[in-house]
Write a protein that binds this DNA or RNA. Structure first.
Length: 602
RNA sequence: GGAGUCUUAGCUCAAUCGGUUAGAGCGCUGCCCUGUCACGGCAGAGGUUGCGGGUUCGAGCCCCGUAGACUCCGCCA
């Protein structure tokens, strides 16, 4: 059955609206206005009808009174949530006692005389006012999900972060320069997305996982100060705070020291948080070496919103009879512990959970002491001498009601295990009391290289272009790779690495030497990085840089734990775009053009 | 590549020890309602309990397989 369509036409001489839905106040009373937006809710009393009208800027209540404007009121009875309408009327102070303090516009309402329905809406697949909705549904209908005020706010914060960044670097004399997205595949680093070349069948581009090499070459080019809001692509398995298509504030500068870069980035972060949170972050940020961060927090990205620090107990147990601790020390390892103050009441289930966590990160078990009623309740207490117990009391400040958790083994495993335990205990004890806390710090003096036992080779901790610490270059020649410190630095906020960078190698011979340590032969270097090694021969300035993760930064600024909440059109956990249904199989014709044959999945 | 948790109405969830016709709130449909803002009242529709198999007199619940979701390990220079 054909239905009559009523088409509303607007001429160039008309305006859709005079105000946004968050604009009107008591002072506007009496003026005639026109608003456009979505029906956020409808309260139909049979006679008088109320509409909450929503646009990006806010919500305004519209009232339809049948005795004053019968036609508009009768049309309002038919409205449904999310219909798009235009309302004209006069601004009036609300009747005494009916003001709504929850709305910025809550002192007024629009007494409507005209209602134009611009477009009707079907019933939505999910409610917009509910927080816990199946994420697949939200992603499939992202254009609806983004109508929710929380999402509008997230995207607004993201915009402000990026705009503040551009303004800041512009003032600092940086040039925003775009680098290619279609790039060259490199063996180091993240798995890349490959893009086939039509003109060179069998050859592939790689989507840039970071502009690293381009920005260094911009320094060779003499651009001196470069930055970019760069899209990076990494085909790695997902996590809650990772995404395959990420955005970085990418930066590189010449004739610059680590100190200069730290100062520059602190200045940027101060401005960003002033702009989006209205807070003044104190400077300078705390500094900590990698060594200290691991020793005290068991992490290279310490969360300093709470204490619960790791205490080293090597001295206490170096001559102990307790085999587990003594054995770890005799093998060149360490013994550490944390004191969870007042957590002796931990349940058996929680202890089991912590033990499980410790095992997951490589511990054999989790020794503990509960101090209850003046007694040490512990499976290991009987192995400890009175002197050792006394030493523990003074080292750990043990008091009634405390829970002590131990780690023993090689240094890295112990740090890592207790670092994870520390975070979980803080969660269980609810130690983060201030939801607005912002604990920034720099972690410096990262190791340059780390040995990968599985691959039986040395890998770059940061990346292969990172400059060794000036004092440690001799250690490379001596083959003591594990002791070499890097001129690399991470900036950490509330236990999240929000950025990192390094001073780079700018000499071709030093770069070649590092490649060799990393197991990249001279022949392979010429195959993979000829441009870089060649460029360094023609007068490359000393340079360095840093990259900040925009997605993570915005997550922290808005306080969400889901990275997809700060991206307009994110892919799901498997890299699918549920709204557009990508990826999809290619047309046979496209594959033929590219010279590609798809092997059937076994 | 591996581990854990989960999957019940459009949405969010419940269903006792394996026991009769799988419930609630919101939403939806219809009617009523003139100051609400979580409006209210009455009535109603809506289910292959992800899918497949098994155990049992009887399965949403137990077992096996499978698909999907989320989180984590590996991985992410």
């Amino acid at each position: 059955m054909p239905t009559a369509l009523s088409v509303v036409c607007f001429s160039d001489f008309m305006t859709y609206r005079t105000h946004h839905c968050g604009a009107l106040r008591k002072a506007d009373s009496g003026s005639r206005v026109t608003l456009c937006g979505w029906v956020d809710s409808r309260r139909d009393h049979g006679g008088v009808v109320f509409i909450d009208l929503r646009d990006r800027n806010g919500i305004t209540q519209v009232v339809f009174r049948p005795e004053e404007h019968a036609e508009a009121a009768s049309a309002a009875h038919g409205l449904r949530v999310e219909d798009v309408v235009q309302v004209s009327g006069s601004v009036a102070p609300r009747l005494t006692g009916t003001e709504n303090t929850k709305l910025a516009t809550g002192e007024i309402e629009i007494v409507a005389d005209t209602l134009v329905i611009l477009n009707k809406a079907d019933v939505l697949p999910f409610p917009l006012d509910e927080d816990s909705v199946n994420e697949d549904l939200r992603l499939e209908h992202r254009y609806l999900d983004l109508r929710r005020p929380a999402m509008v706010r997230n995207l607004t914060v993201r915009h402000k972060v990026v705009k503040t960044t551009r303004d800041y670097f512009d003032r600092q004399g940086f040039l925003e320069i775009e680098t290619p997205v279609l790039s060259k595949s490199t063996p180091e680093g993240a798995r890349e997305f490959l893009v086939p070349s039509r003109i060179f069948p069998g050859s592939f581009y790689a989507l840039s996982q970071s502009p690293q090499q381009y920005k260094q070459l911009l320094m060779v080019a003499g651009l001196e100060r470069y930055f970019q809001i760069a899209k990076c692509f990494r085909d790695e398995d997902p996590r809650a705070d990772r995404i395959t298509e990420l955005t970085q504030v990418d930066l590189e500068a010449s004739f610059i020291t680590q100190e200069d870069i730290i100062e520059l980035i602190e200045g940027l972060l101060v401005e960003i948080f002033r702009e989006v949170r209205g807070v003044e972050i104190p400077r300078p940020f705390l500094r900590m070496t990698y060594q200290e961060a691991m020793n005290r927090y068991g992490s290279d990205k310490p969360d300093r919103r709470f204490g619960l620090e790791l205490i080293t107990l090597d001295e206490v147990f170096k001559a102990s009879e307790f085999k587990v601790f003594r054995g770890a020390l005799d093998n060149g390892g360490t013994v550490k512990a944390i004191n969870a103050k007042g957590f002796a009441g931990i349940t058996t289930g929680q202890i089991e959970g912590l033990t499980e966590l410790a095992k997951q990160y490589g511990a054999k078990g989790l020794a503990f002491i509960k101090v209850e009623n003046g007694e040490w309740k512990s499976p290991i207490a009987k192995f400890l001498t009175d002197a050792e117990k006394q030493a523990l009391v003074s080292e750990l400040g043990i008091e009634e009601g405390d829970l002590i958790l131990f780690g023993a083994g090689d240094w890295e495993t112990v740090c890592n295990v207790l670092g994870r335990i520390r975070l979980r205990v803080a969660e269980l004890q609810k130690l983060i009391t201030d939801p607005n806390a912002l604990e920034f710090l720099w972690v410096v003096e990262f190791p340059l290289l780390a040995y990968n036992a599985e691959e039986q080779k040395w890998n770059a901790v940061h990346h292969p272009f990172t400059r060794p610490h000036a004092d440690d270059v001799a250690l490379i020649d001596a083959g003591e790779y594990g002791k070499v410190r890097a001129q690399a630095y991470d900036v950490v906020l509330n236990g999240v690495e929000i950025g990192g960078g390094s001073i780079r190698i700018h000499e071709s011979d030093l770069q070649a030497k590092l490649f060799e340590v990393l197991g990249i032969s001279p022949e392979k270097q010429q195959l993979l990085f000829p441009h870089l090694l060649k460029a360094f021969r023609f007068g490359a300035p000393p340079h360095g840089g840093v990259a900040l993760g925009v997605d993570r930064l915005v997550m922290l600024a808005v306080g969400t734990e889901n990275i997809r909440d700060v991206v307009a059109f994110p892919k799901n956990n498997r890299g699918e775009d549920l709204m557009m249904s990508s990826p999809t199989p290619a047309e046979p014709r496209q594959l033929r053009e590219l010279g590609i044959q798809v092997a059937r999945k076994a």
